[in-house]
C-alpha cells in the first residue's frame, strides 16, 4: 500500500521550468513517479522531459487530472503557489523551499486546519517517497528500499542516515515523509500518524524529531490514544545550547527551556514510544519489533 503517494498518483510540478524543477522532474520520472503536468506561469504550451507545461494549476488539473503537487518554487513565491494548488483542489502539496516567511506558513497552517483530506508537506523538506513506487521531492532515492517501516523526519540528514542504516540491514520503508525544519510545517507528525496506522504495508513507525516547537508532544498525545503499531522516535539536539537556532529555523530551545529534547523524550516515553539514542539505534530497536 504505502501512504500519500504511489505509482498511480498523478503528480504536477510547480516551477517545472526552473533549474531545480527541471532536474528533479527528470529524476522523479526515472524513479517511476507519474508526473503528468508542469506549471510555470507564462510557459504554458511548452514541454519539459516530455511533460506538458501549463500556465496555471487549474488548467493543468483540467487537462491531466493531477491530484498531487510538488513545488520547486523560491520561498517568496511559495505562499502563492501553495494557495493556488489548495484552491484548485490538490490533496497533497509538497514544498521544498527553505526560507518561507513564517507569516505565510501560519496562514497556510490555519487554512489547512479544517481540511482533513489535504496534506501540506514541508516547507524546508526533502519531500515524500514510497520506495519502489514513486517520489515527490529531491531525496537521493538510491538509499531506499521497499518495506514495512513508515518514517517521518524534521531533518533530511538524520532521515538519510537512518534510512541508509535500515536499508543496509535489509529493512525497507513503506513511505518516508520530510516534515521539514521550519517553525511552522504545513502538516506535522500527528496528521500522518492515522495514515500509517491504517496502512497495511506499514508495520512500524519511526519519528525523527528535534528540539523546538511542540509537535513531538502532540504526536505523543495522539499515539497514546490511537496508535497500535510500534513507534520508535529519535530526537536530535539533547545537547544543543538554549536560545540558538541550530541551522533549522524551527530547531531552537527557548531561554526558558521550552522545546527541549528532554520534554519531548519524556512525553513520547510516557506514550509508550521507544526512544532511540541515535539513527543506528533506531534500526536496532526496529529489529526487535518487526
Amino acid at each position: 500500500m504505502s501512504i500519500l503517494i504511489d505509482k498511480s498518483t498523478r503528480l504536477l510540478v510547480q516551477g517545472i521550468t526552473g533549474r531545480e524543477g527541471h532536474f528533479h522532474t527528470a529524476r522523479m520520472l526515472e524513479y517511476g513517479s507519474n508526473v503528468v503536468a508542469g506549471v510555470t506561469p507564462g510557459k504554458g504550451g511548452t514541454q519539459i522531459e516530455g511533460v506538458p507545461v501549463f500556465d496555471s494549476v487549474e488548467e493543468a488539473i483540467k487537462e491531466t487530472k493531477a491530484k498531487a503537487a510538488v513545488l520547486f518554487v523560491p520561498p517568496k513565491f511559495t505562499y502563492g503557489a501553495l494557495l493556488e494548488s489548495m484552491a484548485a483542489g490538490i490533496k497533497l502539496v509538497v514544498t521544498i523551499a527553505e526560507g518561507v516567511p513564517i507569516k505565510d506558513m501560519r496562514q497556510i497552517f490555519h487554512l489547512n486546519r479544517a481540511m482533513d483530506d489535504v496534506f501540506v508537506v514541508g516547507p524546508n523538506s526533502f519531500g515524500v517517497i514510497s520506495p519502489g513506487k514513486a517520489k515527490a521531492g529531491f531525496m537521493d532515492h538510491n538509499i531506499y528500499i521497499e518495506g514495512p517501516v513508515g518514517l517521518m523526519s524534521r531533518s533530511a540528514t538524520n532521515s538519510y542516515e537512518t534510512v541508509n542504516e535500515m536499508t543496509k540491514q535489509g529493512i525497507g520503508q513503506s513511505t518516508c515523509i520530510g516534515i521539514g525544519g521550519d517553525v511552522i510545517p504545513g502538516s506535522s507528525f500527528s496528521k500522518f500518524l492515522p495514515l500509517f496506522e491504517q496502512d497495511e504495508q506499514t508495520k512500524a513507525i519511526v519519528m525523527i524529531g528535534e528540539i523546538g516547537g511542540v509537535d513531538e508532544e502532540f504526536a505523543a498525545e495522539y499515539i497514546k490514544n490511537n496508535v497500535s503499531k510500534p513507534v520508535i522516535a529519535y530526537i536530535a539536539g539533547r545537547n544543543a545550547p538554549k536560545g540558538k537556532k541550530m541551522g533549522h529555523a524551527g530547531a531552537i530551545i527557548s531561554a526558558s527551556g521550552a522545546g527541549s529534547a528532554q520534554n519531548k523524550i519524556a512525553a513520547l516515553s510516557a506514550a509508550g514510544v521507544q526512544i532511540a539514542e541515535s539513527p543506528a539505534h533506531v534500526v536496532e530497536l526496529l529489529k526487535k519489533v518487526l
Partner: peptide, 16 residues
C-alpha cells in the same frame, strides 16, 4: 557537517 540534523546528532553523540 552538511545539515542541521546531522550537526545536532554529532553534538549529542560526542556528549553521550
Amino acid at each position: 557537517s552538511n545539515g542541521s540534523g546531522m550537526l545536532m546528532s554529532c553534538i549529542d553523540w560526542i556528549a553521550r
